[in-house]
Design a protein around this nucleic acid. Structure first.
Lengths: 206, 206
DNA sequence: AGCGTATATTTCCTATCGGAAACATGCGAA
DNA sequence: TTCGCATGTTTCCGATAGGAAATATACGCT
């Protein structure tokens, strides 16, 4: 079967071999792009944001620098995350990003207890970090120091079953198909129960 | 099983037409906090950003809405990432949060093409939204309108295989164990190939 | 108390933002 | 061609952002 993924990143060519100049971040271009991508006219965008057509036009053409208040209205009305507005200049680019990771082709990291496989490695800047991890059977040393780091995590059990420990909660046994979502600034650890290794998929906020 | 689900936040209230409802987001307070935390006086901050003391004072006291140009200078001068400026203060209390979802006990939402199951429903505010979805075999109508919403998504194929379509890229066939990470403001759609339904796990940024 | 210094706020004033309306441009139909 | 309509741009002007300087405010020190 045809599996013609590119498997990698493919971003718009970084412009300019010229002198390094701090990107003024062309907000107007970005706004226009987003509006066009959704096939909104200035009139529609005006309704959505509560801003005048003329104002939108001037912003898109870099003929004025909107006040922060207006930027907020833009973000709300055009349904874009505010941070997205700013990262977008080069990293994510006008064309968007996509990366495919084939089974077993992530970046491995092996410890005594876990076999981690970092997925989607090609994308340097991303909001989530996905892993697939094999938890070795009967590995109890995980207790010794549980993990604790800012952010949130989602964990899904693919195979086998694990005992999931966190601060403030009772341990819970998760079987294949079960999942857990938690604040990762709580101490947490995951150990395999039963004779088989467990396979888990987990996603962490960047 | 809870079957009266509204399907959660699948679509981000695209329903539009209602104009502005801009969140508060007290920029001034945030700026002042950052400045104070670094023990900078307004004078120092003025040197760093190239903005007048008076301007900084007025911004911190919410007496004016800075232009976007000024916001950029603020970010550069005070050495903060622009996105960081807009993220809400850390909500989660000292106790942390955790929620377990057993297999098949998410909140379902069924369409002609997909059987979605929203996981981790109990946590109202979370940075990621995990779904498990059954993609019906030979469902081509997904083409008619592909999805497009701000943020990023990670998709992992649990069973079967799917064709994954996005703007700007060639379609790619993903088999069990394969995964893809993409900017979800690109149009995207997922259809099952082969005779079997496909089962996918995907996580979307909140 | 008064004086001096350092920091923050308020007062001007000009440049510019942002909205209403006029103007320009494109395009399909008669 | 003409009109008609829809979309994007420019003009005009009141409202306001942002800088320079004056004015508080706080805190030591003698």
């Amino acid at each position: 079967m045809n599996r013609n993924g590119d498997g990698g990143r493919m971003m718009r060519a970084a412009s300019g071999s010229g002198p390094l100049k701090v990107q003024p971040l062309k907000l107007g271009e970005r706004i226009r792009e987003i509006r066009r991508r959704n096939s909104w006219t200035l009139e529609e965008a005006s309704r959505r944001t509560g801003l005048a057509r003329s104002t939108l036009s001037k912003i898109e053409n870099e003929q004025m620098s909107p006040t922060f208040e207006v930027v907020q209205k833009l973000a709300a009305g055009l349904e874009i995350e505010l941070p997205q507005l700013f990262e977008a200049a080069e990293p994510s680019g006008a064309t968007g990003r996509r990366t495919v990771t084939r089974e077993g082709e992530g970046r491995p990291r092996v410890t005594a207890t876990y076999e981690h496989e970092l997925l989607s490695v090609e994308l340097a800047k991303r909001k989530m970090i996905p892993f697939k991890t094999r938890v070795r059977a009967r590995s109890f040393d995980a207790f010794s120091s549980w993990v604790r780091h800012p952010g949130e995590e989602f964990l899904y059990v693919l195979e086998g079953s694990v005992a999931f420990y966190t601060e403030f909660y009772e341990p819970v046994v998760l079987a294949a198909g079960d999942s857990v979502y938690y604040d990762s600034d709580m101490g947490h650890a995951c150990v395999s129960v039963g004779d088989e290794d467990a396979l888990i998929l987990w996603v962490s906020t960047g």
